[in-house]
């Protein structure tokens, strides 16, 4: 399937707002120099919704979202074909540096900068953007930490190193860091896979909060998580996108047998 069918369902029943795709992938093929890891993937990531990508390990979920902000191409040997659109514009025509300020990313393992304090971690992107005004930086750092539900825990130790926090706090710090540059969209690659259930719950809560202002795409191998946080779910298998649709449809009456096998646990 080269082009995705337009989504059949509205975000929430009763809304008539037309759904816009913040990010769109058309006929994407990608690899690392060897056999293709992604083949003819087409997907829309809709504005101010959470799109979950599920699928067994190694099916290409990380590769797919790394294509979206052109982080794929920083790996040696990486290849990519097809179209990726941000608000309808081909991202290949954009400066990757500017693209990544619009499309932020949170990684599987929390990765705060070890040489920086909590404050400096969040401010890092602003500094890159050339924001010099200290008051403005402080204001945005606080705003981002609040949005990432971390402010109350760290407001008294902003000068402490970011790596001194717990795993869950570190991941929220990374979310705050990504939010500080006010991206259009945020990509999260299994952000909770290294965290305990309580820390996971806090992150899921904050995702539901921040999706009010930005577009989210979350990779997860935890199907309950996909069900809890996402409006739409895409199921991938062996480098192909099998099916995408509203999350409840995918989980209750998937149209593809492979999806059904996977979600009912007969697979992977």
């Amino acid at each position: 399937m080269l082009t995705e069918k337009p989504p059949q369902h509205a975000a929430a029943p009763g809304t008539v707002v037309p759904e816009r795709a913040t990010l769109e992938v058309r006929g994407l093929a990608a690899g690392y120099g060897g056999p293709l890891v992604l083949r003819s993937v087409s997907l829309q990531i809709l504005e101010r919704q959470v799109t979950a990508i599920i699928g067994p390990s190694g099916c290409g979920k990380s590769t797919l979202i790394r294509c979206l902000n052109r982080m794929h191409e920083v790996l040696p040997g990486a290849t990519l074909e097809g179209e990726i659109l941000l608000d309808g514009r081909d991202v290949m025509g954009l400066d990757p540096v500017l693209l990544r300020r619009q499309v932020g990313m949170v990684f599987q393992r929390p990765n705060p900068f070890p040489s920086m304090s909590i404050f400096d971690n969040v401010a890092a992107g602003l500094v890159l953007n050339g924001v010099r005004d200290r008051a403005l930086v402080a204001e945005k750092v606080e705003g981002s930490l609040r949005a990432a539900a971390l402010w109350d825990e760290v407001k008294d130790k902003l000068k402490a190193p970011g790596v001194g926090l717990s795993g869950g706090q570190q991941q929220r710090l990374c979310i705050a860091r990504a939010l500080a540059v006010e991206p259009r969209a945020l990509l999260l690659d299994e952000p909770c896979s290294a965290l305990d259930p309580i820390a996971t719950g806090r992150i899921e809560e904050l995702l539901l909060e921040i999706k009010k202002t930005l577009t989210l795409c979350i990779v997860t191998h935890n199907m309950q998580q996909a069900a809890r946080v996402s409006e739409r779910t895409a199921f991938m298998l062996m480098g192909e996108l099998v099916e995408v649709g509203p999350t409840d449809t995918i989980f209750t009456k998937p149209s593809d047998k492979k999806t059904e096998d996977y979600i009912t646990g007969r697979f992977g």
Binding site: L98, R100, N111, F113
Partner: peptide
């Protein structure tokens, strides 16, 4: 660690900025 360099790149840093800051 590559994860640190990628974190900086993903924030919209150039390669040079990543070298200097990470």
């Amino acid at each position: 660690p590559r994860s640190l360099k990628e974190a900086m790149l993903a924030l919209g840093a150039t390669r040079w900025e990543t070298v200097m800051k990470v």
